[in-house]
Write a protein that binds this DNA or RNA. Structure first.
Length: 117
RNA sequence: AGAGUCGCCCGGAUCACCGCGUUACGAAAGUACCGAGGAAAGUCCGGACUCCAAAGAGCAAAGUGGUGGGUAACGCCCACCCGGAGCAAUCCGCGGGAUUAGUGCAACAGAAAGCAAACCGCCUUUUAGAAAUAAAAGGUAAGGGUGAAACGGCGGUGUAAGAGACCACCAGUAAUUGCAGCAAUGCAGUUAGCUAUGUAAACCCCACUUGGAGCAAGACCAUGCAGUUGGCGCUUGAGAGCUGCUCGCUCGAGUCAACGGGUAGGUUGCUUGAAUCUGUAAGUAAUUACAGAUCUAGAUGGAUGGUGAUCCACGACAGGAUCCGGCUUAUAGGGCGACUCUUCUU
């Protein structure tokens, strides 16, 4: 789970991450990462599609994803905004391995882009 | 032992480590407590609470519909009545009014579905014919066939054949009397005319109930902006009081429309309540009264997850969002109690 300071809470931040951030898609998840110059800790948020299932199914998926993000939280750059989107089949997916590849790929892509600038 | 009916309860358990939400303590690190459901769901009823100045009247509209009781209230619950199903326990009912307010409808089939009717059949008379029979006129609702429903039922008298035309018994309707019951209603009797129905989830009539909007209610604090044009008005009253109309009442100097511009962040409401548990008393019961004990989520991008171990039946439906009382729907599996019927043994 994530501490309160590590959560994305405002709709403006969500819009910035999903529209302007770096994107990486796997079969069941989409990861967005947006880098800021702010000196505050990295923050993360979730978007779960209603196609995942009932309220219980969506809640369970959100808990699993939050848990996985926590394992990789230390790798995130300072001031970055991370958004994970859960797609319709993601309830049956193996969250732990898939989320870790998504996060590592999105971090790698952001570093490549920073280096190319 | 088998078959069945009804009611109630549980809804994986225990431990360790890491992690999350509120609250309390603490300077901090941190520590401690508590942390989803029987349906949290559908949002179908009823309330509490908040706002609409106050919540007035009539019509309209909507809802409810056996009787009595329970309740803050209900379309809910309990008991009883009536009708239906079942051998029974028990279950089901959208259960006011269809002579005595009125209008309408009854598909298909059938001759005929509210007043009038004869398809087949039965009977009589007349005519034709040697006869079988045919035709015409009339009588007939007992029989056949149709239908969810067919003009009370069965038997007899009677008759040309028939018919409540008449008789006995039975059923039903209306009026009425007595008894039982708070009542719905039941039981017993008398009289009458001799008697067709369904539909009110058709209009309608009767009785009772209902002002509107909802916690994104409402209150407070921040942040931010820019006006322009047109209409109607300033006590001879524009407009407002968020229901369709009318009346009444109140406020009232600005207001309405179009175009354009701005903000959409936080605090509060927010959980002690028609509360839960236990006991006693009243009541057939729903429920109520009293006493004692307990404090039991309060998030706001929204808290319950991960890993490991043990046990078993290997875990269904499913996640709070202002709060209660119900209803409805979903639900793997398991447990308890009461009752009915059948069979066997003593």
């Amino acid at each position: 789970m994530l501490a309160k300071s590590a959560r994305l809470t405002e709709s403006g931040d969500f819009a910035r991450a999903t529209k302007s951030g770096i994107r990486y898609s796997s079969t069941n998840f989409v990861g967005y990462l947006y880098l800021t110059e702010l000196a505050q800790p990295a923050r993360a948020g979730l978007i779960i599609s209603k196609a995942v299932g009932s309220s219980v199914a969506r809640h369970r998926l959100a808990r699993k994803i939050r848990h996985c993000i926590r394992d990789h939280y230390a790798q995130l750059p300072t001031g970055s905004l991370l958004v994970i989107r859960g797609l319709n089949k993601s309830a049956e997916a193996d969250c732990a391995s898939e989320i870790s590849t998504v996060i590592s790929n999105v971090i790698r892509k952001s570093k490549e882009r920073a280096a190319s600038k």
